[in-house]
Write a protein that binds this DNA or RNA. Structure first.
Length: 702
DNA sequence: CATTTATAAATTTTT
DNA sequence: TTTATAAATG
């Protein structure tokens, strides 16, 4: 398959352009893209603005490398999301023999770290069968440790367990002292500094004894392995080429890892855009992008600045947002596509009004043959779409939401997964914790007793799976208060999983779902919905081995809420709702940006320092540059203070400070709202019935 | 004495 | 939706 007799230089290709005997990877590239694709093995930095064909360039470069004889399994492609990795692999596959593309190492830093750590577990000093905790597990462990530690009671409320994990994560990724992290990013938690320190120490110890890694540990261990003088030699010899996408969003940990893999930069390609750096909260620093050419001798730089995505009008708005920044180097993307329609700025009365206006616009566009698939609603924070989701449900408009609460994090899925993990590994104390707590009559105290009985005492040394299984049989440890019936069922299900030959996974899940049925009734008020959800999950298991099913679920969970839930009316056309962060790298014909009000966008919480404000600006830039043909920005004039529907108190909002100076680039639109004082009585009665209706629909849709 | 129920109060973005 | 606290219930 690698039959080409020569390695074409950039000059050859630019003169050959358009000829039929070109290899597929050389087709459809502009001058700059072509030079990036054909660049040799010296370190290469590609500065690629939004919509300039970054993915295409990267994919073509990989195809070119393989065509020139590089071995696919010695090429590492690091992308930001799984979606990007899949996209890249399929594009490379389209350019050459698809089987070659399958041998590429491509994925996120975390999934690649996981793979490498398993290959080289001995060198990394890890047990080969270590488990990866998802953030929910990690938070649960932190929560459990906190209650075990008896940390001193203070005046101020202790942060939620998810917050403690966020603090830990930022500590690791920023590599800064705890006191600094608290002071800068979590000032309301600084009263608990000592307690948190104690908690994190216990957390680290516990993870080691449980042989589990959290997401951040994956990066820490991968970096340590790659940098180890002797033990790391194998990893360092593994790749000839490393390509990193979204380099502006890498943090020091990730950069260290990459640089350890290819220490002289030979074979290294990075792609990034400083204007799209939006992961500062995860410790990412744009300086890595700027320092690249200084860091590696002989590094080259290619700039892609021709935008193929958006109309002139949309790009003009985006360019102006960047131009107003004092930290970003001034740069203008050139619109290749030409003129389109003027973006619209919609002023709405309140959130509900905005939801109605957005729905109207979406349906209008669909009338004009813009499918729902080609439209997206973007927002700053996951909960900003709440009102819209109600309205979409009311009108029967199907949608998929990216960002916000992930499906896997919903309580009932975690319950089932915990049971499955026990089938996989009876030593999984976290899973016992979750499962046992599910039984009525089991609170913190009895849970402790039960765990002790199973062998997970405080002197947790070596436990044998057999011992745990044996301890399970002692019925007398269960007080009469505990539902023996449910527990007996659970034991039967476990025994079934362990029987030889192993029954199909779907069947194992089914038995656990039966147990859940018994337990959920007095635990969740919408038990039926949740059980139906679990049945869907069982179906996705197919006949894969149980551990494969579980690992994939942990490291690569479904990214959208309905990806697994399989909503009935999703068959053909649906709308995308997404946080701006999750929308990175994607594009739609029509983009509706909602809640563009100061306080939401930029977010109030980001305004403590100048860096925060700049990151919000870049985030807006990312949002605007997702649009190909039409762009609508909307904001409500009033926000209701409470969620209560009867409470009519509200606060006034203002247009985002980033958009405010640009209003002349928009076509202004004011929704025909119930305007002010004159119609108050009418308005309130109309609104009230609407509210009642919304409320009822809300009840029905959940 | 342990557990459940009731009530009030919460800060965002992701692998 | 989760957490902390207080009161009520087995």
């Amino acid at each position: 398959m690698l039959e080409h007799m020569f390695a074409p230089s950039a000059e050859d290709l630019s003169t050959d352009a358009g000829q039929d005997d070109e290899p597929p990877w050389a087709r459809g590239l502009n001058q700059a893209q072509r030079s990036a694709v054909c660049h040799g093995d010296d370190p290469l930095l590609i500065i690629a603005g939004a919509g300039t064909g970054k993915t295409r360039t990267l994919a073509h470069r990989v195809a070119r490398l393989i065509d020139d004889g590089a071995s696919p399994d010695r090429i590492l492609l690091l992308t930001f999301t799984r979606r990007a990795a899949a996209e890249m692999t399929s594009r490379v596959g389209g350019l050459l023999d698809a089987s070659a593309a399958r041998h590429l190492w491509s994925g996120t830093f975390h999934s690649v770290a996981n793979r490498l750590l398993r290959c080289f577990s001995a060198n990394a000093g890890l047990s080969p069968d270590f488990t990866v905790m998802d953030p929910a597990d990690a938070a649960d462990l932190l929560g459990a440790l906190r209650s075990q530690l008896d940390l001193p009671v203070t005046q101020k409320r202790f942060p939620r367990k998810e917050t403690t994990l966020a603090i830990w994560s930022r500590l690791v990724n920023r590599q800064m002292p705890l006191s600094d992290i608290l002071e800068n990013d979590f000032p309301w938690c600084s009263a608990h500094e000592d307690a948190l320190r104690e908690l994190f120490i216990a957390y680290t110890d516990r993870k080691r004894s449980l042989r589990v890694l959290d997401f951040d540990d994956l990066l820490l261990h991968a970096r340590a392995l790659a940098a180890a003088p002797d033990a790391g030699a194998g990893v360092r010899a593994k790749f000839d080429h490393v390509l990193v996408d979204e380099y502006q969003d890498t943090n020091a940990l990730q950069v260290d890892f990459v640089e350890a893999l290819l220490s002289n930069g030979h074979g290294l390609t990075v792609v990034g855009d400083d204007a799209q750096a939006i992961y500062g909260f995860r410790g990412a620093e744009v300086t890595h992008l700027w320092e690249f050419t200084d860091r590696f001798e002989g590094a080259s730089r290619v700039v892609l600045d021709e935008n193929y995505r958006s109309t002139t009008e949309i790009l003009a708005v985006a360019n102006e947002v960047v131009a107003a920044s004092e930290t970003l180097l001034p740069k203008q993307l050139r619109a290749v596509r030409g003129d389109g329609v003027t973006p619209v700025l919609v002023t709405c009365d309140d959130e509900a009004d905005e939801a109605v206006a957005v729905c109207d616009r979406i349906l209008d566009l669909r009338e004009q043959d813009v499918d729902l698939r080609d439209q997206a609603v973007l927002f700053r924070a996951g909960h900003h779409s709440e009102a819209l989701e109600l309205e979409l449900a009311r009108r029967d408009i199907p949608f998929v939401k990216y960002g916000g609460l992930a499906y896997l994090e919903s309580a009932h899925v975690k319950d089932l997964v915990a049971m499955l993990r026990l089938a996989e590994n009876p030593l999984d104390e976290l899973a016992w914790h979750r499962t046992l707590s599910l039984f009525p009559g089991v609170g913190p105290v009895r849970l402790r007793l039960l765990l002790d009985h199973l062998g997970f005492g405080s002197d947790t040394e070596e436990i044998e799976p057999a011992a745990v299984r044996a301890a399970l049989g002692d019925d007398e440890i269960w007080s009469p208060k505990v539902s023996l019936e449910a527990f007996a069922m659970f034991q039967t299900a476990l025994a079934h999983c362990w029987s030889m030959p192993a029954p199909p996974v779907a069947e194992q899940i089914e038995q656990f779902v039966d147990v859940c049925e018994l337990l959920f009734v007095h635990r969740y008020d919408n038990a039926t919905d949740r059980l139906a959800d679990l049945t869907h999950l069982a179906r996705t298991a197919d006949d894969r081995p149980r551990n494969e099913f579980l690992t994939e679920l942990t490291l690569e969970p479904p990214s959208a809420t309905s990806e697994l839930a399989g909503a009935p009316h999703l068959d053909d056309d649906w709308l995308t709702l997404s946080t701006v962060h999750s929308a990175k790298g994607a594009e739609w014909s029509a983009v509706h940006l909602i809640h563009a009000a100061d306080g939401n966008f930029p977010s109030d919480m980001a305004l403590t320092d100048a860096d925060g404000l700049e990151e919000e600006r870049r985030l807006l830039y990312v949002a605007l540059t997702r649009a190909k043909d039409t762009l609508a920005v909307s904001f409500p004039l009033r926000y209701h203070v409470t969620k209560s529907l009867s409470d009519r108190r509200h606060v006034y909002a203002q247009l985002s400070r980033f958009i405010d100076p640009l209003t002349d680039r928009f076509e202004p639109l004011v929704t025909e709202a119930h305007d002010t004082q004159t119609t108050i009585s009418e308005t309130s009665s109309v609104t009230t019935t609407d509210e009642v209706e919304n409320f009822v629909h809300g009840l029905l849709s959940r």
